[in-house]
């Protein structure tokens, strides 16, 4: 059928129209946002509440119990936030890696022909998935603080396990000298230290997320048609080879998108760390909030940081996803 070309006014061109509508919506959203922010600041002013982000450069009068680097009381607030963010990332990234490994093992276990192993994996998933994360945190914390020895237990030469956590030697910079932990009157000082708070958050996040990932991975593996496995076997591939070259690459397409959600959930759930005394971003922001009174600003910083972290994670996972998509020929 011959389609007669019609000339339309520029406003009626579909792409211009769509573009205009989208631009209009964005401008409208920006206007609403500006209105909200100006209303907030004028309301704060009317109530004599000091606002603004100036406080970030002022010295923070609190110390932080643990961190990637030593935060000294008296350093500016923005450094305290950075230290908090570093603590959040430290525990979240480690938990992502560990939960992926554990989730993978559990996912395969769920499909095992061994009834005992399968049963164990199913019970694990059902238990850890169905107990609220906050309760798991508290349970782990109560367990850890109770079980750890009161009198520091020394092992492997310079490692210590005590109520204040696991301390071990760490090299100073790139030099060949080591910072050894040692006993002081109450506890262990020096060296690197994994506190009970850190371990609680790490265990809690890892075990909880792994339960979800396991289901996710099982679903991914089951999504690959059985014929593919049989075809692999017919070609004379070993079980390992089938797994590596046929089953897993195809399963990943199904696994990655929901895994993105679970990892993003993990990062956000790490904000529960404050309940068990781990100095993460939220904990630091909370302390800053109460010391400076800048509630709106501190909450804003928390929101924007988690938003950026989640977006960054999405970008990485989308890239991974594209890499594993089936390349159609």
């Amino acid at each position: 059928m011959h389609i007669k070309k019609m000339r339309l006014g520029w406003l009626r061109q579909a792409y211009i129209k769509d573009w205009l509508i989208q631009a209009g919506v964005i401008v409208g959203l920006l206007l609403v946002l500006t209105y909200l922010v100006s209303m907030l600041s004028s309301n704060l002013q009317a109530k004599n509440i000091v606002s603004g982000f100036d406080f970030l450069t002022k010295p923070a009068s609190f110390g932080i119990g643990e961190g990637v680097y030593d935060f000294e009381a008296g350093s500016p607030y923005w450094q305290a936030f950075a230290a908090g963010l570093a603590n959040t990332l430290r525990v979240a990234l480690l938990a992502i890696v560990l939960s992926a490994v554990l989730g993978l093992a559990l996912g395969f276990g769920r499909l095992s022909k061994n009834i005992l192993l399968r049963g164990l994996c199913i019970s694990y998933v059902e238990i850890f998935r169905n107990i609220p994360l906050l309760l798991q945190f508290l349970a782990w914390y109560f367990l850890l603080t109770t079980l750890l020895p009161a009198e520091a237990w020394q092992f492997l030469g310079h490692c210590y396990l005590s109520k204040s956590g696991l301390s071990f030697p760490i090299p100073i910079g790139l030099s060949l000298t080591w910072d050894f932990p040692s006993r002081n009157p109450f506890n262990i000082a020096g060296g690197a230290r994994l506190t009970p708070e850190f371990l609680t958050v790490l265990f809690g996040l890892t075990l909880y997320t792994a339960a979800y990932l396991a289901e996710n991975i099982r679903a991914g593996l089951e999504s690959v048609p059985h014929g593919q496995v049989e075809a692999g076997a017919a070609l004379g591939l070993t079980h390992q080879q089938i797994l590596r070259h046929i089953l897993f690459p195809q399963a990943l397409r199904v696994i990655i998108p929901p895994a993105t959600n679970q990892f993003s959930g993990l990062i956000k759930s790490s904000s529960l760390a404050i309940t068990v005394g781990y100095p993460d971003l939220v904990s630091i922001a909370n302390t800053s909030l109460i010391l400076t009174g800048h509630a709106a600003e501190c909450i804003f910083l928390i929101i924007i940081t988690y938003l950026l972290l989640s977006l960054l994670l999405s970008v990485i996972m989308n890239w991974l996803n594209r890499k594993f998509q089936i390349v159609e020929r």
Binding site: G63, G65, A73, Y141, T195, T275, G277
Partner: peptide
């Protein structure tokens, strides 16, 4: 502690029960 030039490690809790548990279990001195 800064004024007294004494070192310490704070363990900061939001949850009251967890903070007490930590103290009574010996986590904090």
């Amino acid at each position: 502690f800064r004024a007294q030039k004494m070192k310490f490690r704070p363990v900061v809790f939001e949850n009251f029960e967890a903070s007490l548990k930590a103290f009574f279990s010996g986590r904090c001195q």
